[in-house]
Simulated assay, not measured.
Amino acid sequence: MSTVLILGATSEIGGEIAKLLAAGNTFHLAARRLDALAPLQSQLERLGARQVQLHEFDALDATRIEPLLAQIGHLDVAVVSFGILGDQAQAEAEPEHAALIANTDYTAQIVALTALAAHMRQQGIGTIVAFSSIAGFRARRPNYVYGSTKAGLDAFCQGLSDALHGSGVQVITARPGFVIGSMTKGMKPAPMSVYATDVAQAVVAQIARGKSRTLWIPAKLQILAWVMRLVPRPIWRKLPR
């Protein structure tokens, strides 16, 4: 039996990971709105979860994560799945919106991951899952604010994984491509797009392996990423999302 924490449990990917891990495990689902967690709670219970507890959690409040971890105690798997896409045009016109994207997708992630790493290092065991993106591999004109946060988060996760080497704590950094779902509703899917279920399956398979790893989802996306590095800047800045 494992104890699993999903930070941002209303996210589609977080929910899909929880459902795949449901049978026999204890869950702590954390999000800003407890009422929004009720459907996932019911699903997990039907899928055989041992226990499902709900926690009100505001990722932008840096004081919330440590008391939550103290309340939970021993933790086997933690999935940091909150985040926003934001609006690039609005971010360029309104610094407050740019700050919201940066604080949600980078600063709040760093706070949560740092607290989780310290908590699990004391245990001497555990797995942390974080979500980078192809958008962070080379920032593009149509979404460079979001892309910059993913670039920074990815660099942090690589360093965190190295820092935790030998501690018994694993870090899985997922780098999916365009994820078709509610967050990207109305947007034209990019090449090698995936669904939340695809991302969840890849992450859960890696959790079972018990090793730190950076996951390209799908795996062939890594080839596209390296090709992206070769595109000349004058052409790159004109490419659509």
Rank of each mutant, 00 (worst) to 15 (best):
S2R: 12
L5N: 00
L7P: 03
A9E: 09
S11N: 06
G14A: 08
G14H: 06
G15F: 03
I17Y: 09
I17L: 11
A18R: 01
L20Q: 14
N25R: 11
F27G: 01
F27Q: 01
A31C: 08
R32T: 06
D35A: 15
L37K: 04
A38N: 12
Q41P: 06
S42Y: 07
S42L: 11
Q43T: 13
L47Y: 10
G48I: 15
A49E: 07
R50L: 14
R50G: 07
V52Q: 01
L54H: 04
E56Y: 08
F57P: 06
A59E: 12
A62H: 05
E66Y: 08
P67R: 05
A70D: 12
Q71E: 15
L75Q: 07
L75E: 06
D76H: 03
A78S: 07
V79A: 01
V80L: 01
L85T: 15
L85S: 15
L85V: 15
D87A: 10
Q88G: 00
Q88L: 05
A91V: 04
E92F: 07
E94M: 10
P95V: 03
A98K: 09
A99P: 06
A102D: 10
A102S: 11
T107S: 13
A108S: 11
V111G: 03
A112F: 05
L113D: 07
T114L: 11
A118N: 13
M120V: 08
M120T: 06
R121M: 12
G124I: 09
G124V: 10
T127N: 02
T127C: 01
I128T: 03
F131N: 00
F131C: 04
S133H: 07
I134H: 05
I134V: 14
A135H: 02
N143T: 09
K150G: 04
A151C: 10
Q158M: 13
S161V: 00
L164A: 12
G168Y: 02
G168T: 00
V169T: 08
I172Y: 09
A174I: 00
P176D: 02
F178S: 00
V179H: 03
I180A: 03
I180E: 06
K185D: 13
G186D: 08
K188R: 14
P191S: 01
P191F: 01
V194Q: 02
V194W: 01
Y195E: 14
A196H: 05
T197D: 10
V199L: 06
A200M: 13
Q201V: 14
Q201L: 15
Q206G: 03
Q206R: 10
Q206F: 04
I207W: 03
A208I: 11
A208D: 15
G210N: 08
K211P: 06
W216P: 00
K220E: 15
L221P: 01
A225S: 14
V227N: 02
M228V: 11
R229C: 11
L230H: 09
V231P: 02
W236T: 06
R237S: 14
K238V: 12
L239R: 13
P240C: 05
R241T: 12
